[in-house]
Structure formats: C-alpha cells, structure tokens
Amino acid sequence: MTTIVEDIRASARKLLEDKTVDCVIGFTEGSVPMQARPFFAYTPEETDLLTWNGFCTSNLANFLIKREGRNAILAQGCVSRNIVGLIQENQVNRDDVYILGVHSPGMLDPGKIKAAFAGRNILEVRENGQTLLVKGKDFEEEVSRKKFKRDNCYTCTHRNALIYDEFIGEQGKQTGGGDIDKVAAPWDKLDPDQRWQEFEEEFKDCIRCYACRNACPLCYCKVCFVDEHNPQWCGKTQDEPDIYTFHLLRAFHCAGRCTDCGACESACPVGIKMRRLTSKLEKDIRDKYDYQPGLDLESQPPMSVYRPDDPEIE
C-alpha cells in the first residue's frame, strides 16, 4: 500500500510542477479513524498529503462537474466510469481532465468494522495486505480485510480504471468476486405486496439528509426535484409518501447511469441500502439493453435515446 501512495504523490507532484494541471483531486487522511476525505492539491508541496487506502469511499468524479481549469483526478474503475458518463453528459471536457488511473483493492465499510467491535472504541485501523490491524485503547486485533469490504465492492465488475492518462501501480483483479444479480434477484421473486413491504422496510429510517444525493456523481442538477416547489414534485416532510417519492425518483434518475460506486451507501448516516433499488435498475438495463454505463465514450446511454426497437419492459 505504501508504494502506491508514494507513486501517486510522485505523479501528482510532477503534474503540478510541470503545470500540466492546476489541481490534483485525490484523498487525504481524515480527522477521525476509518475516514479519508477528498483533497485538492494545488501546489507540489501539498501532494505530500495525498493518500490512497480502503477508506477512500467518496466518488471523486463528483468534483469534476463543470469544474474550471485543468484537473488531475485519481480514479479507480467506478470513478473512471462515472467520468465517462459525465463526459457523455457534457459535464466534463475530456481534454481538461488528466486521469490518474488506479486499481481499487475494494473499499472498506467502517460500519461493518464498528459492528464487529461493538462496544469498543476503535482508534486506528491499519491496512496490511489482506488483513486489517484494528487498534483501540486497550486492544489490538488482526482481522481478515475481506470480511469488511463494502457490499458494492464485492460485486464490482471493473476495479481497474477504464480510461486514464496514466496508470499508477499495477492493474489488478477486475472483479470483487460477488454477483450483483444476487442483490437485485430477490425483487424478482416477490409479489407486488411483498416488494412494497421490503421497500418500506428498507427506506423507513431515511431522515432525508440528502447525503446519498450529494455523494452521487450523477446528481448535479442545479435545482433538484426534491427542492422544486412549483410544481412541488415531492413534499418536504418526513412522511412516508415523500420519502418514497424521493428514493424512487432518485433511483429512476440513475437508470442506465449508475456505476454502482457505492458512494450513496457509504455516505448514508443511517445505513440505508439504496443499492437494493439501483442494482435492480442496473440489472434491468444490462438485461434489456445489453448496456453497462461508462464503459466507453462512444456508446449512447439507453435512457437518453429512443430507438424503435427498444425492448419492452414488463
């Protein structure tokens, strides 16, 4: 892990020194354990603060949207796919972005770690290859890293950056080993009433903080539909219809665009699994249109075009 961080810092430093870019977007250590936060390095010196570890769960593509100047960005598979999507949607100009491609080791879910150490205060988590060293005031324990990966990283299909100007480190294994269809599959087995029950159960805790929306690189409207008041698509309350309207429409807006980066779930303070909805959309789009978002710049997202032979969706 250390070497890749050094490689990232070196590349970033060079880009800033050569004035190839005005800014390098990456991560730096967070102020609390198990957290890395997005970081913008503007000077060669600042690149020393860059890091890359299992807690880099924010989707950096978010920060590229309509951003001025020339920027370098650290991108693993999902982020690079989102950048492709943003280029397709005219939000990013390919020529103004320098992509530092990386392989994702699969990001970690602090929630899972905390749950495993319930009642104990974790002060530090150190990554060491396939294991994690979890330290507290009066304990230190080594656990398998694999157990604590985020759900979406299990079902990942593209861990290496797909488009890049420079690849840092070595290309690694592409998949996370899990099957995304298994996330979506349960829906197919349920009848409408059961589906509704499941859906209600999943989203009942939502506090409508919009962290999921804000973390998502697909959500860049100037005025979000939830904030519209004329007409008011969605009430402002915590009532169930409003919560459900929000989540349903948010999911629909992701159809054919979501790369399953997991930023929404990582951002959620109450642990809602939004992917239960988006993974179903992902599967449908893949099954019906033979399309996965962000794999190449040329193909057109199926929800943005109309073709007479578009498949019927039951």
């Binding site: 949607e89 005219n90 939000q91 860049y220 409207c221 100037k222 005025v223 943005s304 075009v305």
Partner: peptide, 15 residues
Amino acid sequence: QSKCVGCGVCWTVCP
C-alpha cells in the same frame, strides 16, 4: 436556462 445543466438528453431524444 437557470435549471438546465446541458447534459444533452433532450437534444438526443427530440424526434
């Protein structure tokens, strides 16, 4: 214009 983000979906779908 104050809401448009220029994503281009409308001009691709307009028949």
